[in-house]
């Protein structure tokens, strides 16, 4: 029996409009989740290095739980499990954003902690010795320097989170992969469709990488 596979360009091109409908969802879940995750990361990252144990412990607990369990389990738990607790269904988009937020928040907490702790203690001492309060010292001296060092790992996390949204096809959000699955169910052109899906992810992540590089260059120039 002879087997011959030929990449069907036409099938790939035909799939684009349908697949592209998934892009807004992928972007919404990624960046919506990352925006909240960034806020969570700052909050819990700073709490995790607080001197007071009753602030530090809850933060570390949160970080370890969401870093130590698979994001797939997290989103399944939020989508299928949590409604039992709150007594009403949670829509897939909300569940997806929540999963990215909580998951990236845990990783970003560690990025924040690392960034802040990497700043020399002498900077804090200089600020305090000038009469600045602890919070003034932190926000006008430590944070701006720490944030610059955080840009590369933050970009890394953003790219990871964008790709993580592909898992949310399991809860039926119409993101890129889900759109692909639906399309393939009708056309059986798996190779072409997933190829296009992959390219679409790549377009998003490469754009982000480029923007981050520009941002980083501008940040570093003044140090």
């Amino acid at each position: 029996m002879e087997f011959q596979f030929q990449f069907d360009w036409q099938a790939a091109v035909n799939a684009i409009p349908f697949l592209a409908k998934g892009i807004p969802y992928t972007l919404m879940i990624s960046f919506g989740g990352l925006a909240i995750g960034f806020a969570l990361g700052i909050l819990f990252g700073l709490l995790s290095i607080n001197k007071k144990w009753f602030l530090r412990w809850p933060a570390i607990t949160y970080i370890e739980i969401f870093r130590g369990t698979p994001i797939l389990v997290q989103v399944l738990f939020i989508f299928y499990g949590l409604p039992d607790l709150v007594g009403r269904p949670i829509d897939p988009l909300t569940a997806g954003i929540a999963a990215i937020a909580l998951n990236s928040g845990a990783y970003i907490s560690e990025v924040v902690r690392g960034g802040v702790q990497s700043i020399d203690r002498g900077q804090t001492e200089a600020g305090l010795s000038l009469g600045l309060s602890r919070s003034q010292t932190f926000w006008s001296i430590i944070w701006p320097q720490a944030f610059r060092r955080m840009i590369p790992p933050l970009g890394n996390q953003a790219i990871v989170s964008i790709k993580d949204t592909s898992l949310f096809s399991v809860i039926g959000v119409g993101e890129l992969v889900r759109q692909g699955q639906v399309y393939i169910a009708n056309t059986f052109t798996a190779f072409e469709v997933y190829f296009v899906v992959a390219l679409m992810y790549l377009a998003i992540t490469l754009t982000l990488s480029l923007l981050l590089r520009l941002l980083e260059r501008r940040g570093v120039a003044s140090i």
């Binding site: 900077q123 001492e125 200089a126 010795s129 009469g131 001296i141 701006p144 320097q145 140090i223």
Partner: peptide, 24 residues
């Protein structure tokens, strides 16, 4: 005691071995 410390630090300047200027 942050309150009295802040007051004192306003009156006392310090110069460090490693300068500790703010690089940003």
């Amino acid at each position: 005691n942050q309150a009295s410390l802040a007051k004192i630090r306003k009156e006392v300047g310090m110069v460090f071995q490693q300068f500790n200027l703010f690089p940003h």
